[in-house]
Design a protein around this nucleic acid. Structure first.
Lengths: 343, 343
DNA sequence: TTTATTTACTGAAACGTTTTCGTAAAAATA
DNA sequence: TATTTTTACGAAAACGTTTCAGTAAATAAA
């Protein structure tokens, strides 16, 4: 049973061994009609026997299809992205596609480079979650101009762009979270947002604002912060917030890392959660549920987002770009507020 | 500045436009010697102007190099793997390589399929962290037989296999953890291990055993469990452990998820940590540090493991397989015990 | 029976590179 | 000046597949 040195097997070797032409082998392999049943099985057994595997470079060169999808994401270690990527990877694999995963590290320069690289690889489609700072999207033109469909999710272009767009309902998520705080009685609500160059923070701010206005609660600009959502930045904001009284009675955070940082800070200062300060995060990072007290947050259902992405990508691959033109309206996926001990 | 319809650009179009032969363009693009400086710059400006990007399928077909590395991993969402993958991806990208990431979902059948697929894609090398249940490795033969180097990490073959092997010092990690517990006074130590089909659990058990023996503490077989490290399985084990007295006074867990489950269980039962029960985990999952009490665990330095993997892969790519033969000894990366409140 | 249609296959070109071999022209050497 | 060496480039083959156009045989229709 040991196949020693199977060596490079090509369609031609099979053809020669069977006294057939390469064309026939190819037809068998691609399930083309007009091939005799006897030859088909003869070929298949030989293919099995020598362990032939199609060379995707050769076939890709000929057909202009790689059966490979490119993915650009800021960081695969961010919880929501990890979950979404897992769903995408499993879904695409089930349909015979490979996935090339790239990380931009939230650097625009790297993102630009990656778009070029993925074009060079002639992937069949590209899925992108942008950098925090991507406001110009022309580096993706090389893809769209060459009929490689592009699909954005989560962090998507704010300006119109000829691509499929899938985003969470960030407006609603922030709206629900804010309304929840107000209904519990909070009035001095602080909001720690990400940079407003990114659609998700624009939308979340809008949801926050609308909830505040509808409930006739004033927004204190001194309690609003816009910056990259790192631990350091969160701590700086907290020092400002608790520099003088009155302290805020709630902090709405645009991600869970920031919410966790607020919780740690509160414990250090002896501020009781939720009695003196309520905390809400965003994304339902697993850490938010195991910490004490557990943190109220907004679930985005990353697995479902991944499935939507897969089905949209497959649609684009099947119908080419004509399907795109009418489908320019962004697809918005639902969110849900998860109430926990921090409120 | 708008480049409308740049259309498929090939080396031949550039050649035609410049009255040169494709060979010359190729030489310029690959920095070959013996090309006149004037023509070189002429070609480069034209390449820039029309936005030409090499078709890697064509060049790959010719050179048998794809500049793509395959990665097979049980789940990208497992913390250690997420970190390692991030390091690998960044490291390889810096050297001009793409990464195709695949998940086996801990299924041997999928892993076998993926090995085939990656061979079909003619990746330049494959990096693998095996399934929990991979004990036969012949499905990777298709790669090694065709001179595609294979590199295993973390979960590696237990039998000799012609591949580069990189593993954490699981023996030492478990030894340190166990010795730590014994030195604190624990004597009735339970150990929740993963299935013994996998090298990491074999090694960890050996480390546990050696520490127990050296400190002359008896191992009670009723307090040892071998199973997939899920929450459900952990809870079953805990029910058995706490079905009758005397209760264990420490639980050593082969991963942090299990340690977290033990912690939750103890809180439910009103068992005080660490006074009545000490807990140690493995891997330093971020959750283990933010929970109260924080959990003592073993740090594996995933970022460093990723760097080692990258440098070994690059070595293999540079020297081909001859370097492999002498280098068959596994590379072992260090670990460190992190003491926290749970002990 | 003859003619039209279908079936089963082959030959050859094409996809876009890289690379070997060959050959002029230029430069160095005699 | 004549000869050798070096430099700069072109022609063409090759990588392994797919597919178009074509053909001989088998089958169906007339």
């Amino acid at each position: 049973m040991k196949k020693k040195n199977p060596k490079k097997q090509s369609i031609q070797h099979i053809a020669a061994a069977l006294q057939l032409s390469p064309a026939t082998i190819s037809r068998v392999l691609n399930n083309h009609p007009h091939v005799h049943e006897a030859t088909r099985s003869k070929v298949m057994t030989m293919v099995e026997q020598v362990g032939y595997k199609r060379n995707v470079m050769a076939s890709g060169l000929r057909t202009n299809k790689t059966h490979t999808i490119g993915l650009i994401v800021p960081r695969i270690s961010m919880f929501v992205h990890t979950e979404i990527i897992t769903a995408i990877q499993n879904g695409l694999h089930a349909h015979g596609y490979n996935l090339i995963i790239c990380q931009s590290n939230d650097s625009l320069a790297i993102e630009q480079d990656l778009a070029q690289t993925l074009y060079a690889s002639r992937v069949d489609a590209v899925i992108v979650a942008c950098t925090l700072f991507t406001s110009d999207f022309s580096h993706f033109d090389v893809l769209t101009d060459n009929d490689i469909p592009v699909l954005f999710y989560d962090r998507v272009p704010v300006k119109p762009y000829p691509a499929c767009i899938i985003k969470g309902d960030d407006f609603r998520g922030a709206y629900l979270a804010t309304a929840h705080l107000v209904e519990l009685g909070s009035r001095r609500i602080a909001y720690i947002s990400g940079p407003m160059s990114c659609n998700i923070y624009i939308d979340r701010y809008a949801g926050f604002e609308q909830a505040m206005r509808q409930h006739r609660v004033d927004i204190d600009p001194d309690r609003i912060f816009y910056h990259e959502l790192t631990v350091d930045n969160a701590r700086k904001a907290l020092h400002r917030l608790f520099a003088r009284r009155p302290y805020p009675d709630a902090v709405l955070c645009a991600n869970d890392l920031t919410a966790l940082t607020v919780l740690t800070f509160a414990k250090e200062k002896g501020i009781s959660i939720p009695q003196e300060l309520r905390i809400v995060g965003y994304s339902n990072d697993p850490r938010s549920s195991i910490v004490t007290p557990s943190i109220t947050t907004v679930e985005q259902f990353p697995g479902r987002i991944g499935q939507v992405i897969v089905s949209e990508v497959l649609k684009l691959l099947k119908h080419g770009r004509e399907g795109l033109l009418q489908e320019m309206a962004p697809i918005v996926t639902p969110v849900e507020l998860i109430r926990r001990m921090s409120t």
